[in-house]
Each structure stands twice: as C-alpha cells, then as structure tokens.
Design a protein around this nucleic acid. Structure first.
Lengths: 344, 344
DNA sequence: GGGATCCGCTAATTCGATTTAGCCCCAGCC
DNA sequence: GGCTGGGGCTAAATCGAATTAGCGGATCCC
C-alpha cells in the first residue's frame, strides 16, 4: 500500500513540533496551545488526509482498539454468522476491530490462538462456544479481560453471556397453554440426555426446567419426553416411532427447528396436519422455520444479541465479574400452534 | 493482561546484546554467532516463555502477519460461515490472523472499514461479496494487495475468486442426461432476470449458459425457464403455477436449494413424487438439502474453498494480476434424480 | 529592577522489536 | 613488528506515535 503521511509530516507542514501536533490531534486540553497553531495543525492533517498509525500508537499506549474472538467452530448452525455480526456491529460502533479465530474443536489449539492474539496486543478476548456448555479457557487468558460467549467457566472470574433458556422453556409452555393445550404434550429432544451426553445439554436441561415449571403452574404437564439427538433425522425417526406406537400427541415441543423439520415430515406421512391435528412449538428460529408449511412457531436463539452484549460488556469501562448474563429469547409466532384437536 | 518478557529481557538474561538475541531468535545466519551464545539465547527465551510482540515488530517491518476481510454481509445464507472458516484455516496454516469486518450493505461504510484495517497495518485485504456480483472497492485499496472474493471488479487489477458456475450448469445437465432426461426440463429461477435485476445475476447467467450448452451437446434442450427470485416461497409459487397451468415437467433445475424446498412442497401438494414423477437437481448444498425427503441432489457452492483459495493467493509471494480463478462446484449426488416417468 | 508566574511551545525519551554500521581482539603473514 | 583479515559481537538508529521534562519570553508584583 502507498506510504501514508505521519504525524511528523503533519507537524512539519504546520510548522510545529510533533508534540504539539500530537496534543492537538488527540484533542488534549492539558497543554496550552494557541488557536492559530491548533488551526494550522488541523488544516495540515486534513490536507494530508492524515490517519494515525494504530500499530505505532498501540506500542506506546498498550491498547490496540482491537478485540479477539476465539470460538470452537463458527460453522455449526445455528450459531455463527449472526453472533459475529452482532459482535461486529457493537465493535464498530465503538471504533474497534475484531480478530476472528477458531480452534476447530481442537482444545489444544486454544493456547496457540490466544497467544497469537496476545502477540498482537488485543485489548480483550471473547471466548465463545457454538452451543452452550462448560469450557476451560486456556491459561494464557488468566488475568486478562475476558468475556465468555455462550459458555460458562466456573471459577474463572469472567462474565458469561448465554441465552435465557429457562425463560424460553416457560415461553413455550405459555404458547401451548394459551392455545388451550393441557394434555398430550410431548417433548421431542428433551434434555439431550443420550448415552454420549448423559447429563444432557445446558440448553436442554434449562428448557425442560422452564417448560415443566410453567406447564405445572398452568395446571398442565408433559405427557412424555423423548430423548434423542437434535437433528432433522432424529425428529423424523422419533415422531414416526411415537405415532407407530399408537401415541396420539396433541402438541410437540421440539428441541430445535431441525427436529421440527423431521417431525413435520413424519406427521405428514402419517396424514396428520399441523396445527389442526398436532401443534408444534420449537426453538432456534433458523431460516427455514418460516419456509415450512405451515410456518413454524419457534423461540429464537438471540444470536446477534449475544455477540452484541459480549462486546459491550468487554468494552464498557470497569472491572468484569463472574456474572451470568441471560439474554432473552424472543418468541416468533407463526402458524404451527392451534387449539387442541377435538379428539385430542 | 500480565506484562510479558521482552527481547531485551532475553538478551540480558543470556548475557548478550539485543542485536544478538534478535538474530538468534529470527534464525538469521548472516551474522556469525557462536554456538555457545546461540544456546544461551535460546535457553533464556525458553525459560522466560518469550514471545515476540508482533505490534512492535510490525512497526519496523511494515508487516503484521494479519489480513483484513471486508464483506457486505456475513449473515446471508448460503455464504458466510464457511467462507470465513476456509479463510481462517488457510491463514492459520501460514501463521496469520484475520480481521473480519462487514459493511452491512452500506457502500459508504467500505472506506471507513478499509481505513480502520490500514491503520492497523494489515498486509492485505480480501474484499468479499456474499453473492457473486460486480463491485467497486473503495479507492483506499488501490495500490494495495487485494483479492476479490466472490466478486469481480473489472479494471482494478486484482484477482477474483468465484465459483465455477458455468461448469456447474454443465454438471446439472449431465446429471439429467445421465438419468435419461432429454425433454420436459424446466429451469426454476433462471437467470434471476426480474424487473429489479433485468440483466440477471452472475450465477444465474453462467449456470443457464452451461446448462444450455451441455443439454444441447447431449441432444436435449430446456423446455422452459421460469424467471423468479430465489427463495423458498418463489419456488413454491412458481412450481404450483406451472402445474396449475397444465404443464407436466419431468425434471426441474432449481436455482437454489431454497427454491427446491418450495418446489418440493408444491409437488407434494399436487401429489407428485420426487424422483418417480419429477426429478429435481439444484444448486448450493445448504444444510437442509440432505434433510429433505428425498434428499436433494445438488451442486455445492464451494464456500470454504473460496475462502481458502483467496487467502492462499494473497499470501503466496509474487505480484497479483487480474486473473479470475474459478473454483469447481462439487456435485452431491442424493436421491432426487431418477429416470424419466414413463408418461413423461 | 529583580524574582516569580504563566503562556506556548519543543527536546528528548519511551514502547519492543529490526537492522545498519562498526568495534575489538586474535591469528596469520611478510 | 606492523598490517590484514576474519570471527563474534555491540552501539545506535529506526519505525510512528504518546508523554515527560523543561525552556525561552512576556507579564506581573513588590
């Protein structure tokens, strides 16, 4: 790239010392500078289209107006793009830039990436996971300014930003209760308590907890919980099996839109119509939720909000503590929930 | 973050001058250094867990081992995450970090972001668009090391990396010809030649060109082209209208998986089965393509490849020229294409 | 009139590396 | 014994800003 003008150039062209130029351009008022000199500096800077070299400045000030984001994967639906977008917008509003890195799921890669960021004097690091879980951030981050995005690290004195899954569970319950459902309600996906993840996932546990609680408060209850993985194939297989077993659910609470996708297929094959025969409420709000027929009522993961809140926390002055910030998950009302079928 | 050891610390601890430490740590052999001194420096660096400060180094060397990525949107399906992932992996393999920025579709934002990158001494900039099109990169990039990702800018002497849409069109034709289709072939989505985009989209034009060419070469031809936007709702509406108009297509070439998604719905409503009654071949390979029933045969946008190639181009030594690099689009054979229906 | 004050600046140092220029000492040679 | 020629280093400048220390000159005061 073409060589850019430096502050020394500005100072020379304005006939003042670099010190004076620096104070004028930094807008500092703790040194007396005549209006005439100030104007000459400003004019010279404008004429030369002067822009400060942030690299040089960081060397002296130890601040680079730069944040690092380390995540496990930025690819996996439904996180990723939107999280980054939210973070980007918040960063840009405060005149910061974002380094994006990913470990690709390799825990050993974390240290290397964090070091690469620290080598470049980032002011802070956002450590992110693409589904909510407990993590163990690399020790290099200890003592630094860190925010955990969509993950928790007990004992690390860093704030976490996670979706409010408990309240989302309550919301799902209220949607169903509001439509008149009190029985025949099934969870498809449950807590994700599979052989591989016997304790379930954070999101699963919290949602079921909120769902149970609010259902009970409304005088209803879950009829059953099908534990399975959260992909389209699982929704298809499990709902099909449920129907084949003679069950006749009145409402499905699907763990993800992908599960709902599969559930729709199984219901269609069985000749059941949504929402006339079976209501479906879901979580995530992926793109295709609105393309399904009927469009899916779902509770959105607040991707971009998570990114935005994380950046704002990290850039707001003041110390960080280990608070867990729960970001609301908005309900998208579409057409997959209706009153219970008369024979329900 | 805790203060890190500097090269001066290493030099002091090894009992040599900073110059010697620098030469040893940089692995330079153009100055004679005794093995003893070399070992002492290496040992001291190890003991102090010394890592060079890239910011300080950049100031001197004018290279930051950092690349900037400027895109219009990183959100829009189907680009985004995978492009970034490909770029990230290639950058990491060469020990570089990536700044990600987005204009959010505001053309005026480009200059500001490019300046913010330049202020931080990025070595190069990738200018990306989320669907293939002509762009006008900010003038600040002139004279710099720039690669255009998924876009073209004639007259700017920067290489472009784009999907090979022409060959993808040919591939679609071959899939159909291979299954025995020679008539009743319809394009849904066409060139995207709508009132708003009368010249069509780059991808649309190229695909139709390749499709036409290979179909003709195989003794077949398109029966018709339905121009429409490329969303699910468009696919649904247009295929429905086609069928209502008494047409009975034997094979659909859908412009995107989203269009296919809608097409599937319209076909199902009309009681037509894929692929027994109608074959469908598509472009993009979004996630849900494999969840559809039957799974969709589609030609993938090589997202991560695009990102990877762009980074490799930009980091490979040597001058850049205005070559257009076409990245192959791989065919994903699934179950939506079969032999023509007997009454087809 | 001489010292204290204040105004409006500038010189010089610093941040942490890289790099150019050159120094000292010992060995070899005539 | 003086001169050359490495070998093995170091001093100092440099990159582009921020910042500390301090300096002339005018003004004020007694």
């Amino acid at each position: 790239m073409p060589r850019r003008g430096t502050m020394a150039d500005v100072a020379r062209s304005a006939g003042v010392s670099p010190t004076t130029a620096s104070f004028v351009l930094a807008g500092r008022t703790d040194m007396r500078i005549s209006d005439a000199a100030r104007q000459r500096v400003l004019e010279a800077a404008r004429a030369l289209a002067y822009r400060p070299n942030v690299t040089a400045r960081s060397l002296r000030t130890r601040s680079s107006r730069t944040i690092g984001l380390v995540s496990d994967t930025i690819t996996t639906t439904p996180y990723a793009g939107e999280v980054i977008r939210g973070a980007l917008e918040a960063a840009r509003a405060r005149d910061h830039l974002l380094f994006i890195t990913e470990t690709g799921g390799d825990p050993a890669a974390g240290s290397g990436l964090v070091n690469a960021l620290l080598d470049r004097q980032v002011d802070a690091v956002i450590y992110a996971a693409m589904f909510t879980r407990h993590v163990d951030p690399p020790p290099e981050l200890d003592g630094g300014r860190v925010v955990l995005l969509n993950c928790l690290a007990p004992g690390r004195n860093a704030p976490s930003v996670v979706p409010d899954e408990i309240e989302a569970g309550r919301t799902a319950a209220r949607v169903l209760l509001g439509a008149g459902h009190t029985r025949g309600i099934w969870s498809i996906g449950g807590r994700h308590a599979l052989p591989a993840t016997p304790d379930g996932w954070f999101a699963g546990n919290e949602r079921i907890r909120g769902l149970d609680e609010a259902l009970r408060a409304g005088g209803a209850a879950l009829d059953g919980v099908v534990e399975c993985a959260w992909e389209a194939a699982d929704g298809y297989r499990e709902v099909r099996a449920l129907l084949a077993g003679g069950r006749r659910p009145g409402a499905l609470v699907c763990a993800t839109d992908r599960v709902s996708f599969g559930a729709y297929q199984a219901l269609a094959e069985a000749g059941l119509r949504v929402p006339d025969d079976v209501s479906v409420v879901s979580f995530d709000d992926q793109d295709f939720a609105s393309w399904l027929r009927p469009p899916l009522t779902t509770i959105a993961l607040p991707h971009s909000e998570l990114g935005r809140v994380a950046v704002e926390l990290i850039l707001d002055p003041g110390p960080l503590d280990a608070t867990v910030h729960r970001v609301p998950m908005p309900l998208r009302v579409r057409d997959s929930v209706g009153p219970p079928h008369e024979n329900g």
